[in-house]
Write a protein that binds this DNA or RNA. Sequence first.
DNA 1: GCCTGTTGATTGACTGATCAATCAACGTCG
DNA 2: CGACGTTGATTGATCAGTCAATCAACAGGC
Lengths: 187, 187
Amino acid sequence: MRRKALIAAAIDAIHAHGMAQVTMGEIARRAGVSPALAHHYFGGKDQLLLATMRHLLTELGDGIQARLALAAGPEERISAIIRGNFAACQFRPAVISAWLAFYVQAQTDPEARRLLRVYTKRLESNLVHALASLTTRERSIEIAETTAALIDGLWIRQSLADGGADPEKAVAAVEDSVRRALGRARS
Amino acid sequence: MRRKALIAAAIDAIHAHGMAQVTMGEIARRAGVSPALAHHYFGGKDQLLLATMRHLLTELGDGIQARLALAAGPEERISAIIRGNFAACQFRPAVISAWLAFYVQAQTDPEARRLLRVYTKRLESNLVHALASLTTRERSIEIAETTAALIDGLWIRQSLADGGADPEKAVAAVEDSVRRALGRARS
DNA sequence: GCCTGTTGATTGACTGATCAATCAACGTCG
DNA sequence: CGACGTTGATTGATCAGTCAATCAACAGGC
């Protein structure tokens, strides 16, 4: 309850003021509580931000898992992974800002780095698994790495676009890239 | 002289401590001067960081231009752009950290956003131009956007890799992606 | 050749503001 | 009454930016 509200407030605060200038007071104010309460629940600024990162990670992971459970066949599994990464709840400006900030954090903070690698590995592992029956194992790994990078890159560029997000276009671009990597014509 | 040293120190400091905790004192210490001097030359923290960003932008742009000048034919021009983006001087951990930090900065700072968009537009423009004679104009734009996103994504993932950078592999992946997008088999 | 005024580079010390973290107090529900 | 959630006030530290003072280089007058 309070934790959820504080995490949501942290995401908004990061988007509004940037990770560099985000303060416990600002987060608490957005959550409608006193700064002291944020310390009470999370024990410190660093741990609150790490908890926010974990929240985004599990939210993304759960979304992808839910879509994977409904997928039939390799092509649908691949689409499920791609669409999960561009799902509406993830593809919001505030969320993208937070992800970017965590990438920066991971450059110096070992725990953030570890968490981000969990996401990286899981994404690539999911892709390799879905690609397994469509090509060789070695080629699966290559395609998975390139696809994962393309997804991350589209996220970043989305953060610079002025207009509203266009997840459909991003999904189409990634799916087309995978099809071509598999040597299949555009459907 | 002093400006160059301070900018280089700023890049290292960002890599070592993260944009959030970088201080004028730390940058000045790495440059071997007093904190007051950094103010004397740049007028403030924000302007020093923006100058650092401009330095990276022009360094990257000049490298690509130099490679483009030596390129003959569309394929070589495309390769020149790709290789310029993964040139050794750019593909260092400290530089990647700085770029990431500037992407975050661009979420809230209009001037940083403007500068980053200059890079984005120039990269896509270069790619579209190089692709012009190989496909339709509309398809050129699509391929350029996807390729630019792939380059950014490979940069980011490079920042998480433990081992040393592998620019050759990244270049090969992007070139292969462009070839497939153009409907050509791997050479 | 030497004194001297000037200019720009450089510094240490200081200040004002900000923020994370702490703690004692307060309400409130059981 | 007692446990829990919550808060306002406080503290100690940190940092950006300022300022007066020092230093080095140099030019010109004598």
